[in-house]
């Protein structure tokens, strides 16, 4: 699990870097209509990051519930809680305060940038 946490943190950091690079790419004068590799990668990583986080929770729930069903005496296994009934916490976007200066309009409110509220993932 620890290794998985590291991997997910790395993915968050990767997304942060992608955001910065895309912003830098735009500043460096790349045609805004051009479908650049960084733009594509940002598109992919942004959707996958959230889904992989949810996947991790659901896998833990499946394993926990199965263990609970066949061996209730073992006590609640990791992830036995049904996560779907809990409100989804906003996940960190992995954008650090530094990044957010690049990624966001300075006038925009922080409520729409969970990464800014929660800090680095």
């Amino acid at each position: 699990m620890e290794e998985l946490e590291e991997e997910l943190a790395a993915l968050d950091a990767h997304l942060t870097r992608l955001t910065k690079r895309r912003r830098a790419e735009i500043k460096s004068g790349v045609d805004r209509e051009e479908y650049t590799p960084i733009r594509r990668a940002l598109l992919q990583a942004s959707g996958i990051r959230h889904t992989v986080g949810s996947l991790r929770r659901d896998v833990a729930t499946v394993i926990g519930s199965c263990v609970n069903a066949v061996a209730p005496d073992l006590g609640p296994a990791d992830g036995t809680t049904e996560t779907e009934s809990e409100p989804d916490e906003p996940e960190p976007t992995g954008i650090t305060p530094d990044d957010s200066e690049l990624a966001r309009d300075p006038e925009s409110t922080p409520k729409n940038n969970p990464g800014q509220e929660k800090g680095p993932g």
């Binding site: 896998v59 729930t61 036995t80």
Partner: peptide, 18 residues
């Protein structure tokens, strides 16, 4: 427990497809 496991399994499959 089985209901929870089955629902989560369906979600796991969907998320992997996504």
């Amino acid at each position: 427990a089985l209901l929870t496991a089955v629902r989560a399994a369906h979600r796991v499959r969907d998320r992997l497809i996504a």
